[in-house]
């Protein structure tokens, strides 16, 4: 009898440890909702995440092997292209939009500033094929990868098959991007009662809840909707946002509400990168709202903030910085993989 109990106990420990290991690859932060991504169709595994990370950092995905995903999505800037208003791609070509940060993508349903991409798995196809970004072709990418020394092995370790497919390539890239979870900012620790706001941050938080949270909704700091936040149209780009996808007039000038996590480091701001500093963004919301048919109802009346209040609001926005995300070594260039290939 005693023996049985011991065996049972060991069994339970092993089982729970196994569950722990499985879940540790993707932990839903306690103050977060359930993710949108269907992990059952693409279960995370360490070799797949590593493969995806290698692909993310490898310029082999571009026509002339010069541009990687990380060229426009660099970790230190929360995976955006800092200092570039419009993204900068192959042969120094300039794109039409500002590269967004890549944060908490598992909670996002539509991708791109206009929602043109309907699933995280399909996202990578867009820059690979875009003539101003990587100017490649997934068919050719797969054959290039197949001809390398390292990739057939990495695919075999990941999918049990060294024959490289488009499906496996996209799923691996998704796996890496799914791990880009930012949930350890000061804001999060305050929400988990592990820390407290300063008075200034506290006041900024109140102002945020009153003026901004209907769109930049906690805890993801986006409601995942598309809104017109009153930016005057840039006449050289004539970007109508969501309208370009749906062709519905009421979607004109609407863009996806971006997350504000790590906003301190993800400048420049807005779909066309028109603002370099957060102070300019706040001035836009208080003074620069351009009226049009599709302007969000929350912004019909100008937001009023004194200059002190703007400083407080900014102090709150800085609490969304997550150093453990920006410097997480498991998101960085995977030296160990590429070192292998030069041996």
């Amino acid at each position: 009898m005693k023996k049985k109990i011991v065996t049972l106990a060991i069994f339970c420990v092993v089982l729970s440890a196994y569950r722990f290991v499985k879940e540790a690859l993707f932990v839903v932060p306690v103050n977060f909702p359930e993710p949108v991504y269907d992990f059952s169709k693409n279960p995370l595994s360490p070799p797949k995440i590593l493969l995806g990370r290698a692909l993310f950092y490898d310029p082999i995905l571009s026509r002339n092997n010069t541009i990687s995903c990380a060229s426009c999505h660099a970790q230190f800037s929360a995976f955006t292209h800092s200092d570039h208003a419009l993204s900068h791609g192959i042969d120094d070509k300039i794109g039409i939009r500002n590269s967004p940060s890549l944060i908490n993508l598992a909670w996002q349903r539509l991708f791109m500033r206009d929602g043109a991409i309907n699933h995280l798995d399909m996202q990578a196809l867009a820059p690979i094929h875009n003539i101003a970004e990587m100017d490649e072709n997934i068919i050719h990418v797969v054959s290039k990868l197949q001809a390398t020394k390292i990739y057939p092995k990495l695919y075999y370790n990941s999918f049990g098959d060294s024959i490289i497919t488009g499906e496996h390539t996209l799923k691996a890239i998704s796996q890496f991007m799914l791990t880009l979870v930012s949930s350890n900012s000061k804001y999060d620790s305050v929400m988990r009662d592990q820390s407290v706001f300063t008075d200034q941050e506290k006041n900024g938080y109140l102002l945020f809840q009153q003026n901004c949270a209907s769109c930049h909704t906690e805890p993801l700091f986006t409601n995942n909707n598309f809104s017109n936040n009153g930016l005057a149209i840039d006449t050289s780009l004539r970007d109508l946002g969501r309208f370009g996808v749906t062709k519905i007039a009421s979607d004109s000038l609407k863009f996806k509400v971006p997350t504000l996590r790590n906003i301190e480091f993800s400048y420049p701001y807005m779909h066309d990168g028109r603002f370099k500093r957060l102070s300019q963004v706040l001035n836009h919301y208080t003074l620069g709202i351009k009226k049009s048919n599709t302007l969000a109802k929350e912004l019909q009346n100008p937001i009023k903030l004194t200059s002190n209040e703007k400083v407080d609001l900014m102090a709150f926005l800085f609490t969304l910085t997550d150093k453990s995300f920006l410097y997480n070594t498991s998101f960085a260039y995977p030296k160990e993989v590429f070192a292998e290939s030069t041996k």
Binding site: T165, H168, S174
Partner: peptide, 20 residues
Amino acid sequence: SGAMGNDLDPTKGMYWTWQS
């Protein structure tokens, strides 16, 4: 439903890349 294989693999050239 995301990435799929065999005849639905994006390498078959039957997928719009800029708008899913």
